[in-house]
Design a protein around this nucleic acid. Structure first.
Lengths: 340, 340
DNA sequence: CAATCTTAAGTATACGTTTACTTAAAACTG
DNA sequence: CAGTTTTAAGTAAACGTATACTTAAGATTG
């Protein structure tokens, strides 16, 4: 037996479908007797509503898309969970998508969510589809998470840590510990956090008159989503003729790769090289060293993104663009050492 | 301007909606001229199909529900990703739900996915809603993941590591290293993997004539989803008058908690107590010790679950119940030490 | 108490698709 | 070439719900 529909319930209760619908939605007066009859019929037929039909009629799916570079990155894992915790009580669900930072995948997921008529999207964009994202944003509530979009026509919100300040703080701190040859393993420059963190680094280095440009020797551009690329960055920097005395990894994945390189190659941290990174690393309290980090809580970012998106949905996207930046602090570890 | 519909396209191309639909689905001959006109109209109006309407008509949403205890547990994070990678090419999407192992949450998510008319569910069940799950399984393809269901009427598949064997192997190995006082931090007994792993432990202990029952002193029942509970387990066991010489944690979260306890309380592993756990721990190669583990790859489990579910969907749930068990091996670390 | 207002419930349409059924014209056939 | 078959395209119904509109009966009014 296929599922009962509202018609079956109506027939069973000897009322019209309108009455059944009214009982279900409790948005119109129905006499107690009929209400009871409907309830009984629902019970008897084991009826439950069909959301698809409801969505078609209501033009709202109560579904939110979450597009991130990689849901198995522990940062996004927590973001995912935090968003879920925020939206579930408001009766929203999450469709989760990983782009692997590929333009095509992001594009096709956006298209798909559009077709699925999601009510809104939380997007950690690749940065490559800015025009398309901007165009989608005209009609669909979007909160960008961690990565800004270039297009001035973009409509929506943005949540992130204050990358430039965080990176500046971290670099300044490293400088104050006496370091001058400071290596950086950065992320893609197509991504706002990639450029902003580099910018913070650059500004801090400028305070000691070191110019960070194409000729800066201690720079490696990695991929935020591949720990392996942090590994390669560490190898590159440590293989230089005159290696840096400190290395800063610009996100958690890169940091994991770098630490892996150090460990597997017997490079003592911080005795042989100091180290720090942007962003907390899950369970790093159990690591063989405790990296000094720029604190960035995915929980807060996820919750805020969820809240902002729901607001935007409720206001039918009729809100000014908003930007929320969390100013990060430094968390002391034992991988940054003063040098003389 | 709201989105164009198939009617708008039909009008623009001066054909019927049927023709447009046929062009879209490419499932019926349409003359090249008309086809071109339709394509042009689609292009011009920036039309894309409405999945909700399509789903209503087709009775298929191309959506799969993934219900797990906690999506931020690194094991499920990887499962999630693996499932996504399997189902995406088949045009399925994932709605992800975390139950926190609570009966009510699982129930309401199941109900919700039912209403959303998902095409199938991958379920890491709490174990509490077995009757409901069994009843849902009659009509909707379900693949259980990691936790079996009691009800004999359940219809569907089951994927897991071979818990009993894995746990037996691990315990036997520990015994062979000379341990006799072996502590176990287990999971909920409402969960099949909880009981099975305990059972493997029990069998192995029986080989040295130690009976593991309610009176067994070195047992702590924890919560698979809370590392904190592994911490408490380790504290409990190490605080005993005559503490165990080895402790086995029955999943990755419990293991993390236990290691945390050891580390923060200066308990040397393996000198003061040996340790091992069931299931890989993410990035444990960077930990201060490398736990000996029973290998369990979430990638394989996720992929298989995805594949089996899709098969089950394609065969309209007309398949015998299947059970897939991965026989796990031991991975050597440095936390298990021979004692004399 | 006739005229008007209120209201509980029903009728029927719409949401955007897909497709069974229909139709008209073209292509065969003997 | 009249009769039959094929076929490209159109018409209209259906998926399950929500609700604007309608209706009939009861309540209210002067």
């Amino acid at each position: 037996m296929p599922n009962a529909t509202i018609k079956d319930v109506a027939k069973e209760a000897q009322v019209s479908t309108a009455t059944v619908s009214r009982v279900l939605n409790d948005n119109y007066f129905v006499s107690p007797e009929l209400k009871q009859k409907v309830m009984d019929a629902i019970e008897k037929l084991n009826y439950y509503p069909n959301s698809v039909a409801r969505s078609l009629k209501n033009e709202s799916t109560q579904t939110i898309g979450l597009i991130v570079s990689d849901i198995s990155n522990s940062f996004f894992t927590i973001v995912n969970r935090s968003v879920e915790d925020i939206v579930k009580p408001r009766d929203y669900n999450l469709i989760v998508c990983s782009t692997d930072n590929q333009k095509d995948k992001e594009y096709s997921y956006l298209q798909l969510l559009l077709e699925k008529k999601v009510d809104g999207i939380i997007l950690n964009t690749t940065g490559y589809n800015y025009d398309f994202v901007a165009s989608v944003s005209q009609h669909l509530p979007i909160v960008l998470c961690g990565r800004k979009i270039e297009n001035p026509f973009f409509k929506g919100d943005f949540v992130d840590s204050d990358n430039q300040t965080g990176s500046y703080k971290l670099t300044r701190h490293t400088i104050e510990l006496g370091h001058r040859k400071i290596g950086i393993i950065g992320g893609q420059q197509s991504i706002s956090s990639g450029t902003e963190r580099l910018e913070g680094f650059r500004h801090a280095m400028a305070t000691i008159d070191i110019k960070v440009d194409a000729s800066y020797p201690y720079q490696f551009v990695g991929d935020y989503n591949r720990a392996q690329s942090g590994y390669e960055g560490a190898r590159y920097l440590m293989s230089l003729q005159d290696p840096p005395t400190a290395i800063l990894a610009m996100n958690n994945e890169l940091a994991i790769g770098a630490l892996r390189y150090f460990r597997t190659h017997g490079i003592e941290v911080p005795d042989q090289v100091s180290f720090a990174c942007y962003g907390n690393i899950r369970n790093s309290d159990l690591f063989y060293v405790q990296p000094d980090t720029v604190d960035m809580d995915p929980r807060v970012i996820g919750s805020k993104a969820g809240e902002m998106l729901i607001e935007r949905i409720e206001y039918k996207n009729q809100l000014p663009n908003r930007e929320l930046r969390f100013t990060p602090g430094l968390v002391k570890g034992n991988t940054l050492k003063r040098i003389v």
